[in-house]
Amino acid sequence: MERTKPYNRRDFLDGGMRMSLALGLGGVGGLLLSNSTGEDWVWQIDPFKCTQCGRCADECVLTPSAVKCVHAFDLCGYCDLCGGFFLPDANDLNTGAENQLCPTSAIERKYIEEPYFEYVVNEELCIGCSKCVKGCSSFGNGSLHLQIKHDLCKNCNVCAIARLCPSDAIARLPASEPYLVKGDFIESESTRSE
């Protein structure tokens, strides 16, 4: 494959340039190595920073968005009059779509016992619009909140929503701890602050 020709000045210069490029690459590589991790990063929403602007539904590269509403049942009051389920001016507290806040009727309301109701998010239907989150945070306990679901998320090099999130709520997390689900989050947060 190598042609047999005399070693000339061109080869010499090429060799020199090759060495310098190799050194340059090595330098950059070494510098980066000193600031590297064997872990991987994933994107996640900090539910305490999220201000429910609604961009999560529109700005994800996927349609429907990889962002879904997650219910931290631990924090839920199981209210009959659920701020995340019913429109503020709902006529009737029944599951008619015209009374629901969720544009896709993704929240399933189930009677448990007097006077409590369970609310489960159907992720197949949820588009991550944060309407229910806003309702639940304003009128309820804030148990409904948004999370990026990692079975759906493409883990884009830069999350398309993160750039546009007005509250800077989306950041990289180590892939070994990929969620900030509210219930768990409070525990770890309080142990940290103690």
Binding site: A72, F73, L75, E113, Y116, E123, C153, P178, E189, S190
Partner: peptide
């Protein structure tokens, strides 16, 4: 934090019917 458990806006009910609370799903990344 200090108040959230002691005093949620609507405290978590004590269920009598043996209701078991589900968990939110958190599928692992790749």
């Amino acid at each position: 934090n200090a108040t959230s458990f002691a005093q949620q806006r609507f405290p978590k009910p004590d269920f009598e019917s043996g209701y078991v609370q589900p968990h939110p799903t958190t599928p692992e990344p790749r």
